[in-house]
Design a binder for these strands. Structure first.
Length: 377
RNA sequence: GCGAAUAUGGUGAAGUGGUUAACACGCCAGAUUGUGGCUCUGGUAUGCGUGGGUUCGAUCCCCACUAUUCGCC
């Protein structure tokens, strides 16, 4: 069966919503953060570790799994859940973002997108139908429509044509979608143009999906103002009884701002990527464990954190691992960073429940930015 | 004890008689938002073993000393 969203409570001062999503692999609460596991693995972590940090949905990537090991093989293995032994809900991205990051605009046509494999350079052609077909085989719980993801800097003309084409692609994808266990989300584009966001949202809703995403906000060089504006222009035109998903966003501040504007789902590579580069989220701002000042710091990554890494290891040790290029360093920081974002959403949900989200934001910012200033001086 | 070679930043090492001493690693610090996983961007020797000399000028030429390495006894 498809997912089922239930709206439980709307926060009194903001557009924030408390809800649940029932899936074939359990009920998850929203707003939520979804870690990214591009190649059928959240880099360096096992499913058991993800359960332990109360992670719900994870992401996998259609493009990557299509190239390797191939959709047919995953299907033969019994689907993505079975293949990677993850018994929670899985969402697959459509490959639309790879279109943005791998193909030059001239290779985008009405039919689909031509681009080169990042593995061996061979030419590839991805279409809306192909993307959905692959996702059907992967057997994820939520599939994404195949969209084009232009930068906010694109001209009005380009953006207008692009979202028209993305709408036609959405229709084509929905037409071939046939996995009854799998839900399908539509994606709203339009950059920072108010009327295009509105148009894209309204038209996408007309097609009818199980949930709606706001895309094109976490592109390279996009400003936060554009991101927040894009959300504000899109949200009013999305139905209340379906989940809303802000694609690619995962900075703590952006999650809070997104929730306040009515977003239910977030995903981001940030917690795992910065982890591998030695950075950690903390309630007092982001810290770089590579900094010399942590050489003899025998306190946890974050005081009071309940994650496995903080319960058992010190900054000095993690710093040593990162400096020595030991994979355990990135692993421990990934555990901490993902747990940090999940804990953030837990606190946000509690604040929504108690109608004190703005106060929570105030308190969070005070801690988060105060420390940054301290670091600068 | 004798002979030879070499002495450049934290390390390995280029280099030239004349403005800011290459490069690599390390170190220091940034970046990273639907992941093309050891990535990208900066910074890092007021100084070329020590003391003298030649020269308008020396890290680069000469002498002595010291240290290291190799060979011989």
């Amino acid at each position: 069966m498809a997912i089922e969203y239930q709206l439980l409570h709307e926060e009194k001062d903001t557009k924030a919503r408390l809800g649940t999503i029932r899936t074939n692999y359990g009920i998850v609460e929203t707003p939520m953060f979804m870690p990214v596991g591009t190649q059928a693995t959240v880099k360096t972590l096992t499913p058991e570790e993800l359960y332990a940090m109360h992670s719900g949905v994870i992401l996998a990537n259609t493009y990557h799994l299509w190239l390797r090991p191939g959709a047919d093989l995953v299907q033969k293995a019994g689907g993505l859940h079975q293949f990677m032994n993850y018994h929670g809900p899985i969402l697959t991205d459509s490959g639309g973002f790879q279109v943005f990051s791998l193909a030059s605009p001239k290779n985008i046509s009405e039919e689909g997108v031509k681009f080169k494999s990042h593995i061996d350079g061979r030419p590839l052609f991805l279409t809306p139908e192909k993307s959905i077909e692959i996702q059907n085989k992967l057997d994820s719980d939520i599939a994404m429509s195949f969209d084009e993801c232009p930068p906010a800097s694109a001209s009005f003309e380009y953006m207008k044509n692009s979202i028209e084409r993305t709408l036609r692609w959405a229709v084509r994808g929905k037409k071939v979608h046939q996995n009854p266990r799998q839900s399908l989300f539509g994606i709203v584009q339009g950059g920072a143009y108010p009327e295009l966001r509105e148009y894209s949202a309204k038209e996408t809703v007309k097609i009818g999906f199980d949930g709606y995403s706001i895309g094109g906000v976490a592109n390279d060089g996009e400003s936060k103002e554009d991101m927040y504006a894009a959300i504000d222009y899109s949200i009013p035109h999305l139905p209340k009884d379906k989940p809303r998903y802000l694609m690619g966003v995962g900075e703590p501040v952006d999650i809070i701002e997104g929730v306040i504007r009515g977003i239910d789902m977030f995903d981001c590579v940030l917690p795992t990527r910065i982890a591998r580069h030695g950075h950690a989220f903390t309630k007092h701002g982001r810290i770089n464990l590579k900094n010399a000042k942590y050489t003899e710091d025998f306190t946890p990554i974050e005081e009071g954190c309940d994650c496995y890494a903080c319960q058992n290891y010190t900054k000095a040790y993690v710093r040593h691992l990162i400096k020595a290029n030991e994979t355990l360093g990135g692993r421990l920081l990934s555990i901490h960073n993902i747990r940090f974002l999940i804990r953030l959403t837990e606190e946000i949900r509690q604040a929504i429940k108690e109608d004190r989200l703005l106060a929570y934001r105030e308190e969070f910012y005070q801690n988060y930015f105060q420390e940054k200033e301290k670091n600068v001086s």
